[in-house]
């Protein structure tokens, strides 16, 4: 196509010119590297590689699915500030997921779905985009629909409180990669928990309506809370937030899905995976 210039061509002609000069400066360019490039991924002695891999996969799936859910808030949050905050929480979780899935793949490559010969899809993407719902190991709690802002706040609070407590313990795990992911995660999850905790308090002390929504949303989350495991420290923190907010722990029976996922996961995955699955040879 012939180019028409009304003046001497200069760098201001295209708003995107700067992005195209050097591919390496476009953060999501073609060169998406192995997130563990340069990291020693030898499984330490005395650790079962398959067990370590499935454990990392579980932790990675929790982060990946909640990240995907929270991304649905983009451009829909109550205001710009909370929109960016939720996107940032989602980005942190995606970063954790990427490292954990890559760690799982490096520890036990047999877990990674087979792709066509010569596919450029890296192992962590193969795990994220080419597994079916039944192969995901995340807790049902993270796949539930967002609900309204109050429900999302309650869910982040519960999830981040348990995960922060777990990650603090994982900072002394024998596997150096998992230990490092946990150490970084602790800083991120502290922010997630306190961000959600502050909003929890604000909504609890807001209007009758905000309080009603907070309680209703928390009840839906609470029924799946047991999936996150027994953790006295996490429970203590949650009790503290509830007491400060003057909200009683929801009186709901735990919902057991018998190890299966809810129908919500397959819909979430359909949206998340459709493009990658149509282009297994695609380069992004």
């Amino acid at each position: 196509m012939p180019e028409i210039h009304t003046h001497e061509a200069d760098e201001h002609d295209s708003a995107y010119a700067g992005l195209l000069v050097n591919d390496a400066h476009w953060a999501f360019g073609t060169d998406f590297e192995d997130p563990l490039a340069g990291v020693d991924t030898t499984v330490p002695e005395g650790i079962d590689a398959h067990e370590l891999a499935t454990y990392c996969l579980r932790l990675g799936d929790d982060a990946l699915i909640l990240s995907q859910r929270l991304s649905e808030w983009c451009s829909r949050a109550p205001d710009l500030e909370e929109d960016i905050a939720l996107a940032n929480v989602a980005l942190d979780l995606l970063g954790q997921a990427r490292l954990l899935l890559a760690r799982a793949a490096a520890a036990d490559p047999s877990l990674v779905p087979a792709l066509p010969e010569g596919s450029p899809v890296p192992p962590e993407d193969a795990l994220a985009f080419f597994r079916d719902d039944r192969e995901f190991r995340n807790a049902c709690l993270v796949e539930l629909p967002n609900g309204d802002f109050a429900e999302t706040v309650g869910r982040i609070l519960v999830f981040a409180t348990y995960r922060l407590s777990l990650f603090q313990r994982l900072t002394s795990h024998p596997d150096a990669v998992l230990r490092a992911v946990a150490a970084k995660g602790v800083k991120e999850l502290t922010y997630h928990r306190d961000f959600a905790g502050r909003w929890f308090l604000t909504l609890a002390r807001g209007s009758d309506e905000s309080r009603r929504r907070l309680e209703a949303g928390l009840a839906r989350t609470w029924a799946y809370r047991h999936e996150l495991g027994e953790d006295d420290e996490a429970e203590l923190v949650l009790e503290q937030v509830l007491a400060t907010s003057g909200i009683a722990a929801p009186d709901v029976r735990p919902i057991s899905t018998g190890g299966r996922h809810t129908e919500h996961l397959s819909r979430l995955l359909a949206e998340m995976q459709v493009v990658a699955r149509q282009h297994p040879m695609g380069v992004w």
Binding site: A27, G38, D92, G95, Q96, R98, K184, E188
Partner: peptide, 16 residues
């Protein structure tokens, strides 16, 4: 040592 786990600038730093 990476700054943030989701930081998109890390790959660029490594390339540069």
């Amino acid at each position: 040592t990476p700054t943030y786990s989701g930081c998109p600038a890390m790959a660029t730093m490594r390339d540069d």
